[in-house]
Design a protein around this nucleic acid. Structure first.
Lengths: 200, 200
DNA sequence: CAGTTATTTCAGAAATTACTGAAATTTCAG
DNA sequence: CTGAAATTTCAGTAATTTCTGAAATAACTG
């Protein structure tokens, strides 16, 4: 491997991280390298930089393309393929989320749904189904939230993030306003398992 | 493998999913099995159910314990160890998030910080650093949000989720109110990197 | 203490995954 | 068309990961 030390640390780290995800080491390294390169790189430059075989680079780039994590560029009068990563980190995040959802979450949801449709043949199975239903419910809530939030423009999303849980204070305010509007009902008094009024 | 069909599907699916994460197949299967079992299971029951070696079960349970994803139980007059999963799915989610952060996000942040401290030795390195700074910034925003939100009680969190991006409408309302309060300025016109006020 | 049961460790076998080099394919120029 | 350059494919090998059986350790009983 033949890289400026500071870049090498980054590339190596991503290689290790890659293997901790489903991604393999080489794929992680190539991604990292492209991410920090000022110009698009061609396959042979990657071979040179990382010291791996040409065919490995070819396969790994293909893998990255199926993840939509790299984009192919062409230079005039050069028929080699050059590669970069999208440069907006928020966009990268979105892509990553989308792909992981597609590969991990959606199949799980569909397996769960399928199982939940079936008739349990015993108490054990019946119990299992209730557990799976809980899991299904949680995942569905999360994906609904995700589907909803991913539509936001980056600026708004960033804003939302930076509010963090402060948002709940706002919600309380809203609740108050709404129940003021309603006037009649004692609003929050009714059956709430959770006792602690924490009214600011 | 010796399981009711409906449970077997679930267990097999989690096995496959496991290998797609860093977790391996057996670990995934054991987790799934414990998750849907009405009673805690001992190691030999797992051996029996999944048809794997006793030693593999022992190692995999240890792995699950380091993730805090299983809990050990003891029955009276029985010195074997029994295992279950926590049964609140929200709690499981929190644990998972926490562990993955610890293993994946935190080390990445620290590598990035370290690299960003160093003096770049060339333009290439300088450019790489700016890219890494972008990534670092994004990750930091996300983890700040996470640290903030994870403190919420489940009920509140679920509430927040179910609002999804509707929340932004509320934010707009708030903006309007706030700028009404201020009266003078055209409010949003000026370049504001971050909304300083949060009402409260 | 010896004997019994439960659990862990670990060297090596088995299985899986990643990588390479050589050959095949594609793409383009003349 | 031929030939050169770029890329891909793939069979075989290398490396890594997972899993097992046997042995070691630990925890308890009487």
């Amino acid at each position: 491997m033949n890289l400026p030390p500071l870049i090498q640390s980054f590339v190596l780290h991503f290689g290790e991280m890659g293997s901790r995800w489903g991604i393999n080491r080489t794929v992680g390294q190539i991604y990292a390298l492209l991410y920090v390169s000022p110009e698009p790189l061609c396959a042979d430059e990657i071979v040179e930089a990382l010291g791996i075989s040409r065919s490995n680079v070819s396969m790994s780039l293909r893998e990255l393309q199926t993840w939509n994590l790299v984009v192919l560029k062409h230079l005039p009068n050069d028929r080699r393929d050059f590669f970069t990563t999208p440069d907006d980190v928020w966009q990268i995040l979105r892509t990553l989320a989308e792909e992981r959802k597609k590969r991990e979450v959606d199949p799980t949801l569909s397996v769960l749904r399928e199982i939940l449709m079936q008739q349990p043949g015993s108490d054990t199975e019946r119990f299992a189904q209730t557990r799976m239903a809980e899991m299904h419910g949680l995942i569905e809530q999360l994906t609904n939230w995700y589907e909803d939030v991913k539509k936001l423009e980056t600026e708004r999303l960033a804003n939302l993030l930076s509010l963090g849980s402060k948002i709940t204070r706002l919600l309380e305010t809203k609740d108050r306003i709404v129940s003021l509007g309603r006037r009649k009902a004692p609003a929050r008094a009714a059956s709430r398992p959770e006792g602690g009024e924490d009214g600011g």
